[in-house]
Nucleic acid binder design. Structure first.
Lengths: 147, 147
DNA sequence: AAATCTATGTATAAGGT
DNA sequence: TACCTTATACATAGATT
């Protein structure tokens, strides 16, 4: 693309990386939208920049719907892979969905409590640290109201 | 692209749609991977074909990680948007229980994120602060392992 | 840092096998 | 149906402003 060949490796120059990110991000979102419309596909695209900013595209602007569908889908797969451990009975889809969400939240919560950190990469840890720091700041400014 | 101009509308011919889907899907996945590597971005891409088949790409092949991060980022918004998924019908006890747990966790999570603090007493705030402080300590000692 | 400009590399729509 | 081929449209790297 463009005047130079591109090597598939991290762009070290921060400025170039940021420019390329911006250009390619818009291209990627556009193509996600195109395949969604042209091929009647359900698409969810989540992109976090290096600095942690979120960009997203979802068919019909409803990421929630896509993620629920994804969770249902991967939940079902998990069910098929590990059969008799779980539900023998007649579970409906709604239940599977809500159960999958609960599982995700439980894992999140353990992380918020500083547990199960072994499963997180350095980058994840940094994100979490940033989140917790922010929470503490908010909390402390709230405490002031009680003084 | 290719020999014809493309109009951004659903391809009605099923065969063409399927062919285009297959080509564009691989292109999209490739570009998702490229931006992930080149720009050190965290990318999650979910695509369901018309027929419901799932295709996905995630940085480091870990979609759950991306989705957790996404949930952390957009959780509060999603709560506000999707309040009443209530079903008045015949839910069994198991479902009711699991749903209640989810609600509790959702409220907790907002607190962990430093939101909805108005509903907490000073004592609760102090407990939460202590918890978050502890989490950060654990997290930072875990980070040391990466140095 | 953001917007615009082009030369060039890629993706892909049609068509062929 | 699925895989080649190729002409063309599109995306974008690097430069410029």
């Amino acid at each position: 693309m463009g005047r130079g060949r591109v090597q598939l490796k991290r762009i070290e120059n921060k400025v170039n990386q940021q420019v390329t990110f911006s250009k390619r991000r818009s291209g990627l979102l556009k193509k996600a939208h195109e395949i969604s419309v042209l091929c009647d596909a359900d698409v969810g695209l989540i992109v976090f920049s290096t600095k942690g900013k979120l960009f997203e595209y979802a068919t019909d602007s409803c990421m929630e719907r896509i993620l629920e569908r994804y969770e249902r889908c991967s939940y079902v797969e998990r069910q098929l892979k590990a059969p008799a451990l779980e539900s023998p009975g007649s579970w409906n889809l709604e239940h599977a969905k809500i159960k999958a969400r609960l599982e995700v939240m439980q894992r999140n919560q353990r992380h918020y409590m500083g547990d199960d950190l072994d499963s997180l990469s350095l980058k994840n840890l940094q994100n979490l640290e940033h989140q917790l720091d922010g929470s503490l700041k908010k909390l402390r400014s709230r405490k002031v109201c009680f003084v």
